[in-house]
Amino acid sequence: MKETLRLILTVTIICSLAGALLAGVNSLTKERIQDVNRNKKLSAIQEVLPPCDNQPDANACVVEYGGRNWTFFVARNGGAFAGAAVETSSSAGYGGDISLMLGINAENKTQAIAILGQKETPGLGANIEGDDFKGLFAGKALATSNWAVAKDGGEIDQITAATISSRAVTEAVKAAIDAYLANEEAIEQTGGN
């Protein structure tokens, strides 16, 4: 009995000390980690949006479409609608989820995409992060473009030997565009006077 008590006491004390230490470290790094995550998202939003004079990340419009919630960050320039950025993802990647930020401009064309997270094969699927591939998604008309990879009869040239990754990116972009087109008016008015 006495020995059992000693075992319990030792483990309890060690765990409590470890817990206290971790609580301290957590409170020191918490803000910093939040900052890092916010900046990461902010720079992606800025990367895909046309020039604007408001704070797109503070001017969001949440819509529901196709069973998912979409958060559009709306950019304005001199009060007029300049564009919108939206985070989208596809689970059809070769190595899991691919998440990206899509920018749409006021001419109803795509502005740019930025890959936020992917676990594709290095050297093959991971080339979706390359400018050559991302450039394919710039300046295309939203409604009239054929959003599919060339292999499926669309107009996005897939990366050789990485059709699955290319298809997943295209699919994610198309889902976001559908959500945008279905809620175009509400998004364009967000933050307007």
Binding site: V11, I14, A18, L21, L22, V25, T29, R32, V36
Partner: peptide, 22 residues
């Protein structure tokens, strides 16, 4: 006890690294 000590330091590394070397 060893695992608790090791896990504590690993968590510290994890937190510091995600804050300073994202």
């Amino acid at each position: 006890c060893f695992i608790v000590v090791i896990a504590t330091f690993v968590t510290i590394v994890d937190l510091v690294m995600s804050g300073f070397a994202p």
